[in-house]
């Protein structure tokens, strides 16, 4: 018989209890027993949602009517266990009353959890299509010669503003003969930004830009 030494009044005890129940349906054995009832009496309110196993067990044991719960106690073959309950019947009764008084609270809690999940799900759902429609692009912007002011070039590039276009990090990559090219990242929303148009716009800075290439193009 698995003996429970979790202090269910503390958060840590509850957490250990949660881990303990991970692969068990009941505190002890394969059917509800006095051990379950004892543990239930120790827990005043439903375990939080981040302890799914404890919560599942709690809801399960609580789903039995009170007289059935008492029966589990009586049929618990272990005499020691029954003895401990008879010593503190008053306390048990109190807890029983508490159990049913907290019904509403539990409902509110369950509703809250459900709401949270729904919200999380809706968020996930709303994010998904948005993510699909975005691309991360790395552009190579090449200057005319080594005398082109790369800082000005970058500044000019970043002045381009389009709906759905976000500039990211940039760096200078040496090409040879002291010439650097500007590698700049940007994230675009496919539906709003045409990449060709963006490239053309950069090439319009004829003073600085010789050519623009797409170095990398990734859908996110």
């Amino acid at each position: 018989m698995a003996i429970m030494d979790f202090n269910l009044k503390t958060e840590k005890g509850l957490k250990d209890f949660n881990n303990f129940l991970e692969d068990k349906s009941y505190v002890s054995g394969w059917t509800p027993s006095q051990a379950d009832v004892d543990a239930l009496n120790q827990i005043q309110k439903a375990p939080p949602a981040n302890l799914p196993h404890a919560l599942r067990w709690y809801n399960h044991i609580r789903s039995y009517p009170a007289d059935e719960l008492k029966k589990f106690g009586a049929s618990g073959a272990c005499p020691l266990k029954t003895a401990t309950t008879t010593t503190a019947p008053a306390k048990d009764d109190d807890d029983d009353v508490d159990l049913f008084a907290s019904d509403e609270e539990e409902d509110a809690e369950a509703a809250k959890i459900r709401d949270e999940r729904l919200k999380a799900y809706a968020e996930k759902k709303s994010k998904k299509p948005e993510l699909i429609a975005k691309s991360s692009i790395v552009l190579d912007v090449k200057p005319w010669d080594d005398e082109t002011d790369m800082k000005e070039l970058e500044k000019a590039t970043r002045t381009i503003e389009m709906d759905g276009l976000i500039w990211g990090a940039s760096k200078l990559v040496p090409v040879g003969y002291g010439i650097n090219k500007l590698q700049i990242m940007c994230v675009v929303e496919d539906a709003k930004v045409s990449v060709d148009e963006l490239v053309e716009k950069i090439q319009e800075f004829e003073d600085f830009v010789q050519s623009v290439d797409i170095a990398a193009f990734n859908k996110i």
Partner: peptide, 10 residues
Amino acid sequence: LSITTYLIAS
């Protein structure tokens, strides 16, 4: 089964 002990009822 993460939230229930048995498929149906308790």
